[in-house]
Computed example of a mutant assay.
Amino acid sequence: MAAFHEVRFPLRLAMGTSGGPVRRTDIVNLSNGRENRNQRWRNSRRAYDAGSGVRSVSDLYAVLEFFEARGGQLYGFRFRDPVDFRSCPPLTVPSVMDQRIGTGDGVTAAFQLVKTYADAGGGWTRTIAKPVEGSVVVSVNGIAATNVSTDHATGIVTFAAGHVPAAGAAVRAGFEFDVPVRFDIDRIDVSLATFEAGRIPSIPLVEILP
């Protein structure tokens, strides 16, 4: 991923974050009252606003420092979604059985981390490119795998030579992850409410798709 810094937006500065997945759908209303719906984006794209209420002057400066270090919109960075940041629901612990990331063929050693959102009506599989270091656990046919390395910049897990999953073996993983984002603005407006506190009304962020 070009123009990306492997640093995370400080969690303490994102307490008032709002946002989530965005999709694009064209809806055409027909003369008979019905409608046609067409999906413009194959994948969703997340958008957030990390602006919040009153902050200390130290926090305001930390935001400015982070913004300047990224060059505004120039460099991407990691951001933790306030709700969706694990391979499992937010109040549970990731396990080796959470997400199926592939099926062994006896040859393939590398597998991309993914997360599937599904119910009885349909589903969608999301590529996970920024797993949190030390959080990834992998299994083959339900047995925890230890001879696996993870590239935390791409989300690819690789089995060591001699430990490649056999043909038909289910490869699963559990993990925490960040969202690759960039600032969606080249200007930060700081408003001082008092001598020691102030606010940044809006800090828009947008996901960088892998």
Rank of each mutant, 00 (worst) to 15 (best):
A120H: 12
V137M: 08
K130V: 09
V148T: 14
G142K: 13
D49C: 03
P180N: 04
V22R: 05
P131K: 13
R126F: 01
N38A: 10
L91T: 14
G198H: 05
S58E: 15
G102F: 04
F195V: 12
L205R: 14
V181H: 08
Y48R: 06
P89N: 12
P131D: 08
D178M: 13
P10W: 07
S87I: 15
N36S: 04
I185N: 05
I128H: 05
N147Y: 03
V157H: 08
L11I: 05
I27Y: 08
V7W: 04
D98T: 09
L30I: 02
D49Q: 02
N147F: 01
S58D: 15
T92R: 14
V136R: 07
A193S: 10
I185Q: 07
L74R: 15
P201K: 11
R46Q: 05
H152K: 10
S52V: 12
A166T: 06
G53K: 11
R86A: 14
T17Y: 05
F67G: 02
S31N: 09
V137T: 08
V83R: 06
V140A: 08
W124E: 10
P204M: 08
I156H: 10
P21T: 00
V93D: 09
F4T: 10
G53D: 06
G168K: 00
A120P: 00
D186M: 13
R55Y: 13
T150A: 09
E133A: 11
I101C: 02
L209A: 14
E35N: 06
T150C: 07
D105T: 07
R23L: 00
A14D: 01
R46G: 03
Q73S: 09
N36L: 09
A160E: 02
V179W: 15
R187N: 03
E65Y: 11
G123H: 01
